[in-house]
Design a protein around this nucleic acid. Structure first.
Length: 1083
RNA sequence: GGCCGAGUGGCGAAAUAGGCAGACGCACAGGACUUAAAAUCCUGGGUUCCGAAAGGGGCGUGCGGGUUCAAGUCCCGCCUCGGCUACCA
């Protein structure tokens, strides 16, 4: 009695496919359409495959099988991202070489993947740890090392797209004459600074527990992404990749990719391109800081006055020396333009809001900023030093935790605002980061949230310079009423401000230079409190009070665009106009320029671990064995540079790389010219190998090149790439970066590697139910109720009950245990947004699915699913759960459901009562009748559409609907069942192959052909048309499919119910959508 | 705090271009087969009201408005949940 036996079928067909090399990609055939379908290759962890892996893998497998049957040539490879920390951690614990652990894990993964029947071309398998593979990873690194980014290069790539900016060979880098004059070593040093792979001493994320430095992307909340160990910031010489050079192209070239918009957006945010301006604030030469206190204010007014940069408003004999210097500086800038590098006499800031320059009330430097020393006055020295000391010890975690209150210290020094000559105090604070922009900011508390918080904390002045465009009519009216009496401004304070804040604002206003004397409350309504302010007459004369109204929020900064106020001749401009105007003015006077900044940092590319690719680099040593800072590269022929054998895998415990413990023979050599060389001892991060693996799959055996150029042209780009969204900004950005470098250097022909990207959603554990017994009379001590957790347990028999910290009884049961504790749906009742026990409304039941995790014990092992139900059931279930992109909880009962469906398919086609596997007697070679044909063709149409759009869940329900019908047929025509089996085959390939064979198939069905449908058979001849009256469904009438409005309307009116509803009413209008519905609009 | 996404039966979900809400599956209930169980097959169901029943009416896609002959779908305003991000000037 052969029942559906997946355990028999599946190994049989897996062996068949392997033996016949069914899925090996043949030689490329230019006549056929190609399709490159890629899964994100897994890291082969010791835990083995997780049910999350087969989700994406099944989806791509279905796409591949479908397209093979459609006659396309499909490339569908699999490999292993095998370098990485866990294998090394294991080596530290047990002494087992990471290579051994890795090989073992790969074996497990491969066995598991094969047991699921994926149609990978295993001849293309690769692991990033193979010397044949990482040889080319090292080779690509050398390409990066050999490349500089020419930002002004205007060129057209092989894809026909014109671009500005290109990676070019370092040999083409122009050497400035003064560098060349200093000899060969100077030239080499200059080149080294320009390469895409370069060394840099910088504060890095050092993780003592892991014994390594981590990339920004690998640090989450001040802890390591892997393991959650604390991370400190220490300065260290590191290798960096200049990904920022490609920031623009990485952002703009996302445009034409068929990727989820959310991922594109995440990448754009990560790159974080912002446009703004750099502006120089004058801080003077040496004696400046000493003299500053003597200057209370400058008689200098307005740089951009009617005469341009002049001293028109300055009375030189009244000005101290520093003012003369400042004026000289202004004139010099006007002559020479904006300097490339800021000199020691200026503080260069970056801002996206140059329109708020008139609202600057203080400046902030990052604690590490080089100008801090110069600006610090003797009185402030101790405080500044202490603050800097603290900041340097702070890990990112500390900085995050302290983010709630801003901290900072006054340096004692001042700068001069170039637009209005105001004296601006300079502070240091760790909310300003040395690594972004220029490491210095101008603070505009009125219009920046962070500056606002800081200003509140340290009592800095707040000057509003932007007001909302839609100024209240109330305020406009107020101004109208009072303007005649003098020069007034009205100010609105948001209603949530406390009285104390209003008082404080009044005080602040009185302190402002542009407020004359009068400050009073003139009105208050639910929009806020209105203050009327009288301003100096000269402001009015100068036409400076153009807009009648302005708003100050004492509670918050106004960060939006609006209309300029308090900004001299710029008053009245919109934010956008202001920005472009002042940027141009600054540029013209040499005080600033347009600038672009990126949130993206250069990619920290070195790790101090063992299990990674060694760098193909050497450091030159001098006669004393000390590094000279000059580098040599390995010849291509010397690659791969393999890892040395090590006596032990213990980290050095210092930031010194593991490989510094390597044998001398590996570490040192002499160059042919006699120079002593020491190997670079860092290794590459795990991302390196995954950056280009899709290129190697195309030609994984090539010993002469990373991939054959011809094959690369034929197969790339990847047409469909499926993987988890967790790689949205790491792997996917790094990979695109490398690809673009290879593109610029002429090694690949497309600018982007992955044309279409789909993210699979996470699979959560089974839904868990938790009951909370609480409220009156329950919990501990209630009257006539369970007195404690044990009593509740007794009451709901066999539920697992614990007490939580608050003394509430918590009862827990998993989905399956639910029935045993009698929490059937009848026992549970909806109450508001949650559920309660039906007869005990005081016991709340909550259901929730959690991430699968070892600690929660809700991990589903795919092996056990295959063991109990078979691979086809696992595949089918994972696809049937819901849309691929969605997060969804696992359900073992759901697996059972699809297993039942497959069993039903088996029973419908085979004879379960026979002793051997044979066709069901109902399956006969007869001519199908019309309803059967119609059902088949509708199913073909629907399933084809669904698979094309990756909607496997609905494809499966179509097949189920088909089966529900087909099982009822007494005679089941072979001509109907064969196409059905083909439709099923991408989803459940093992069962389909077996049935195909039974139905007379001679070879595998893997190459189809995919069934096509007859449009005539898809359309019904007779259809039910819903009849609505005033948009409400009242009846359905059956009419011929092609019936015109008159016929359908007549049929509708003939319906007794419709007729009775229309009785005595006027039909105003009849809406008829052919074949879909009729709507009578009546009065 | 910022950005993105999602809210539809007891549950996973479907509804392809604004046109029959709840396909398909799970769970549940009733029945058939069986000594019994498992397996299998059949039947049922959003909710509520009227009715003995057949049948019929009302209400229903997070909440409140709007557009439309017609809204799960489009627009405006909220609420809740999830993801990403977090001093990026």
């Amino acid at each position: 009695m052969p029942r559906y036996d997946a355990k028999r079928l599946e190994p049989k067909w897996q062996a068949y496919w392997e033996e016949h090399q069914t899925f090996a990609t043949g030689p490329f055939d230019p006549a056929k359409e190609k399709m490159y379908v890629l899964d994100m290759f897994p890291y082969p962890s010791g835990a083995g495959l997780h049910v999350g892996h087969p989700e994406g893998y099944t989806a791509t497998d279905i796409v591949c099988r479908y397209n093979r049957m459609k006659g396309k040539q499909v490339l569908h490879p699999m490999g292993w991202d095998a370098f990485g920390l866990p294998a090394e951690e294991y080596a530290i614990k047990t002494g087992t070489h990471p290579a051994i652990t890795t090989a073992k894990n790969i074996e497990t993964f491969k066995r598991q993947l094969k047991s699921l029947g994926f149609s990978y071309d295993w001849t293309r398998e690769l692991a990033t740890t193979d010397p044949d593979y990482f040889r080319w990873t090292q080779w690509i690194f050398l390409q990066l090392f050999d490349t500089w980014y020419d930002a002004s290069c205007d060129w057209t790539g092989p894809d026909g797209v014109q671009r500005i900016g290109r990676g070019r060979p370092i040999s083409e880098l122009p050497i400035p004459a003064d560098v060349a004059a200093n000899g060969e070593a100077a030239v080499r040093r200059y080149q080294d600074q320009q390469r895409l792979a370069y060394q840099h001493e910088a504060p890095v994320n050092w993780c003592p527990a892991l014994g390594t430095v981590l990339a920004n992307e690998e640090v989450v909340d001040g802890k390591s992404e892997r393991g959650g160990h604390p991370v400190e910031r220490i300065p260290l010489r590191q290798w960096l990749l200049r990904i920022t050079a490609y920031g623009d192209r990485l952002a703009t070239e996302l445009e034409n990719l068929n990727w989820p918009e959310s991922i594109k957006l995440m990448q754009r945010n990560w790159i974080g391109r912002s446009e703004g301006a750099e502006v120089d604030f004058y801080i003077g030469s040496g004696e400046w800081t000493g003299q500053v206190d003597a200057i209370s204010s400058f008689p200098y007014r307005g740089l951009f006055g009617p005469n341009g940069i002049t001293s028109a408003y300055i009375i030189p004999e009244e000005a101290p020396k520093v003012l003369h210097d400042f004026i000289a500086w202004l004139k010099q800038n006007a002559r020479n333009g904006f300097r490339k590098e800021p000199g020691p006499d200026v503080l260069r800031i970056y801002t996206t809001r140059p329109d708020t320059l008139f609202g600057v009330t203080y400046m902030v430097l990052a604690p590490e900023h080089p100008a801090v020393n110069r600006l610090t006055t003797p009185e402030q020295r101790a405080a500044v030093d202490e603050y800097r000391q603290q900041a340097s010890f702070k890990s990112d975690l500390d900085r995050t935790e302290l983010a709630k209150t801003k901290s900072g210290v006054f340096t004692g020094g001042y700068a001069i605002n170039p637009v209005n000559g105001k004296k601006i105090p300079v502070w240091i604070a760790d909310y300003v980061l040395i690594s972004y922009g220029t490491g210095a900011i101008m603070a505009v508390p009125a219009h920046d949230t962070r500056d606002f918080e800081f200003a509140k904390e340290y009592d800095q002045q707040i000057i509003p310079v932007v007001q909302p465009e839609d100024a209240d009519e109330v305020l406009a009216q107020l101004f109208q009423n009072h303007f005649a009496q003098g020069c007034y401004s009205a100010i609105r304070i948001s209603p949530s401000s406390a009285d104390a804040s209003v008082e404080r604002l009044k005080e602040t206003l009185k302190g402002l230079p542009e407020v004359d004397q009068l400050v009073e409350i003139v009105a208050a309504n639910d929009q806020g409190t209105y203050l009327l302010v009288r301003r100096p007459m000269e402001d009015a004369v100068a036409g400076r009070i153009t807009p009648p109204v302005r708003q100050i929020g004492l509670d918050e900064a106004f960060t939006f665009d609006g209309i300029a106020i308090n900004s001299g001749k710029y008053d009245g401009l919109t934010t956008a106009e202001f920005k472009s105007k002042i940027t141009a003015d600054l540029a013209a006077s040499g005080l600033g320029r347009k600038a672009v900044n990126y949130r993206l940092r250069d990619w920290l590319f070195s790790r101090q671990r063992y299990w990674g690719e060694p760098f193909p680099l050497w450091h030159e040593l001098d006669v004393n064995g000390q590094p000279t800072g000059l580098l040599r590269v390995d010849a291509e022929s010397a690659l791969p540079i393999k890892l040395p054998e090590m006596a032990d895998f213990k980290p050095t415990g210092t930031p010194e790389p593991m490989l510094s413990k390597a044998p001398e023979s590996w570490l040192y050599k002499s160059a042919p010219d006699g120079t002593k060389l020491k190997r670079e001892t860092n290794t590459m991060p795990q991302w390196a190998g995954s950056c280009w693996y899709y290129l190697r799959f195309v030609d994984n055996k090539n010993a002469a090149a990373f991939t054959d150029p011809q094959l690369e042209k034929q197969w790339l780009p990847v047409d469909l790439y499926v993987g988890g969204a967790e790689h949205a900004v790491l792997h996917l950005l790094y990979s695109r970066f490398w690809h673009k470098v290879l593109f610029d250097r002429g090694h690949v022909h497309t600018a982007e590697p992955f044309q279409r990207l789909v993210n699979q959603g996470m699979i959560l554990g089974e839904v868990e139910f938790t009951g909370y017994a609480r409220g009156q009379g329950l919990g501990v001590g209630g009257q006539g109720e369970p007195q404690n957790a044990a009593a509740v347990a007794d009451w709901v028999s066999s539920a697992e009950v614990t007490d939580d910290d608050d003394g509430n009884a918590i009862l827990k049961a998993t989905g399956e245990k639910l029935a045993t504790v009698k929490l059937s749906p009848d026992a549970v009742k909806k109450s508001g947004d949650s559920f309660v026990l039906a007869d005990r409304p005081d016991i709340r039941i909550e259901s929730r699915a959690y991430k699968m995790s070892k600690s929660r014990g809700n991990v589903i092992n795919p092996d056990s699913v295959v063991e109990n139900y078979g691979a086809d059931s696992l595949r089918l279930y994972e696809m049937f759960m819901g849309p691929l992109e969605q997060v969804k909880p696992w359900s073992m009962q759901g697996v059972e459901g699809v297993f039942r469906f497959l069993s039903r398919v088996w029973r419908t086609i085979t004879d379960e009562r026979a002793d051997d596997v044979r066709l069901n007697p109902a399956v006969q070679d007869v001519t199908p009748d019309e309803p059967q044909l119609r059902l088949l063709h509708k199913t073909i149409k629907a399933v084809t559409y669904d698979i094309e759009s990756l909607g496997c869940n609905t494809a499966i329900s179509r097949l189920m609907e088909f089966m529900n019908e087909a099982t009822n047929w007494n005679v089941r025509p072979v001509a109907i069942l064969k196409p059905f089996v083909l439709l099923l085959s991408p989803l459940a390939p093992h069962l389909a192959e077996e049935l195909w064979q039974l139905l007379g198939g001679k070879t595998t069905l893997a190459y189809g052909p995919w069934p096509t449908f007859d449009p005539k058979l898809v359309e019904d001849s007779e259809i039910d048309v819903p009849i609505q009256i005033n948009g409400k469904l009242r009846a359905k009438v059956s009419v011929p499919a092609k019936a015109d409005q008159a016929v359908v309307e007549a049929a509708a009116r003939a319906d007794s119910l419709v007729a009775s509803q229309l009785e005595g009413k006027t039909v105003v209008k009849v809406v008829y959508v052919p074949g879909r519905m009729v709507n009578f609009v009546v009065k």
